[in-house]
Design a binder for these strands. Structure first.
Lengths: 334, 334
DNA sequence: ACTTTTAACGTAAACGTTTACGTTAAACCA
DNA sequence: TGGTTTAACGTAAACGTTTACGTTAAAAGT
């Protein structure tokens, strides 16, 4: 027994067209009928049916967000930003947890298409050709967040991984460190892995410090990668005084491993992280790290898809500034 | 130029009814026409329009999840579980970030109604009367996650906060601690605050240990609450040897504050947390805590709403078992 | 051989809106 | 006064499906 626009129309003695006009306040009715209709709507508790609306207007006020890992704190912050502006625009977000699986990604893309969503933000993954094709066929705006495509013309929102890694490394150097290791994402990872390694290498080079390949252990971005990587690193490079972690989770892994090995941070070992997640200030010691403005980036990504929706044109990519947040995991060497 | 069922029908020389039957594989067509139609669908790249479908079938294959704080790790895990089974059921989830604001909650409820979603999971908040009324009017299944209602008959998925707190406290006692403080959620919080305090009190009472009101500082569940609370606690109760934190975030706050005050955990102070978030194993020292099976609970909550959808009847609530996860933040006193 | 069943469709109404277009009466104008 | 504009509506088509019902011809039954 759901009540429709017809019920309202009947009870208010007007046509459904008039009710529609009033609900969407488009011109074409008198003050009095407006009053009347509004009152009837109240009495009946009428709410328009979004499906019927969307069928005609071709707008569902829904966007899709594709994330590889939903319970990562990075994603939480991104989603938080995205949700915020999406809600401001009167829309809502469907979260699609791809688990980095092509299968699930494609499934979700199908679903999103059938649901006729208005836009997509694609997060932290490489945009494969068939993903791109699928989305392109949907003919809706998409923007990439914390990733970019070298093959397809999709606007993105990012910080410069390379430069941020450069900054982090340089920071350690300026603090007097010379023997610096890195625990990074995989080299094969064109988006977040290799660029950060490049930035690290470049900083070392510019400051005329030696690097060996074994100084860089390329495992991944997780906590476990951090602890495993640190063991590997400390074996091959015992004289190390500082390490640059390619993510805060990795940094926490290092902290944890060091603690167990009775290596005191920062007195015996300095650690700098990457991301500035909320846990960065919760660790012991609090983590010095290079910050990405995560929530802001999420917001901007969403804003861009709405801008594209409204203007019907593409939009420029944004490189956000990174920033070193000094806490207590790095010590100045004298 | 989106292509519809009509285009398929025309090109395949059949009626739209037949196409529809084939797409939804309901009986009423021959093998050959099926072949033909399927092929045409391929060629044209036809995808059914979910809006039109939903308009008739009254199913949108979408559920809404209301969360107070999206970037909390607790929520991440819940959402992760919910998303998982929702996807298995061929549906998707809209996340609604209420920020614990009545305003935003009501807005989202409106939106969800207009979107004609199939079900709701309501998380970690008290269900106010008007929320309940709004949802009841939508006439769709809802289940509560990590919260419950004493006023309305809504099935829920929870652990027993009281008993879990009891267990945590008893664990400390069994480890030889006698002077135990607690940093908890607010007393006014009927859902997660007071019950945990009650559990704590009860365990102390049963083991004939004294408690003063100042031993319990009721601030909230955040990291900051943990550090502030610990300062307050240690001032009023310097001889303390252990503290029960009502959340892992609070526990981290305690760890952090203790570290700065040069109080060594666990040698000088034992800390037990609550939740078993992923960070619990990342902290230094790794946090002993009482675990809620967060992902499982999220899964179950979603399963229950789908069960209610299918059977059209309500469902029994579930109390999940908690469990002490021993790590290294609690020391045995001898 | 005749009726009855059944498989394989097609027709058209329905779902709940928006909106182009038509209609009416009042207001306005010269 | 007669014509023109305008405000305030109503009518009906359209959006893309699903589905109850009707139709036809072949298969089955007696």
């Amino acid at each position: 027994m759901t009540i429709t626009i017809k019920d309202v129309a009947k009870k208010a003695n007007v046509s459904i067209a008039t009710v529609s006009r009033i609900v969407n306040n488009k011109p074409g009715y008198s003050k009095e009928t407006e009053q009347k209709v509004l009152q009837v709507i109240q009495e009946l508790g009428y709410h328009p049916n979004g499906l019927a609306r969307g069928l005609i207007s071709k707008r569902t006020h829904t966007i899709g967000v594709l994330v590889p890992e939903i319970s990562s704190m990075l994603m939480s912050e991104f989603i938080s930003g995205i949700e915020h502006v999406t809600h401001e625009y009167g829309s809502s977000v469907i979260v699609c947890h791809t688990e980095s699986q092509g299968q699930k990604t494609r499934q979700y893309l199908q679903v999103l298409k059938e649901k006729q969503i208005d836009g997509i933000v694609f997060t932290s993954e490489v945009l494969k050709k068939d993903y791109y094709q699928l989305i392109k066929d949907m003919d809706i705006p998409m923007v990439m967040l914390s990733t970019e495509s070298f093959d397809f013309p999709v606007p993105y929102v990012k910080v410069s991984d390379r430069r941020a890694a450069y900054s982090a490394t340089e920071y350690l150097i300026k603090k007097g460190h010379r023997k610096i290791g890195m625990i990074s994402g995989r080299r094969g990872d064109i988006i977040a892995g290799q660029p950060r390694i490049d930035g690290f290498m470049e900083a070392m080079k510019v400051h005329e410090l030696p690097v060996k390949d074994e100084w860089i252990v390329a495992e991944g971005f997780s906590f476990e990668d951090g602890v495993n990587g640190f063991h590997k690193l400390i074996n091959q490079f015992p004289e190390i005084t500082a390490v640059f972690a390619a993510s805060d989770e990795v940094a926490l892994g290092i902290l944890s491993a060091a603690y167990k090995m009775n290596i005191h941070v920062p007195d015996q070992l300095s650690v700098i992280g990457y991301d500035n997640l909320r846990i960065a200030e919760m660790s012991t010691p609090p983590l010095t790290t290079v910050a990405q403005p995560l929530v802001e980036m999420g917001k901007k990504a969403a804003e861009l898809v709405f801008e594209m929706m409204e203007t019907n044109r593409s939009v420029e990519s944004r490189i956000f500034p990174h920033e070193i947040v000094e806490r207590q995991s790095v010590k100045e060497l004298s």
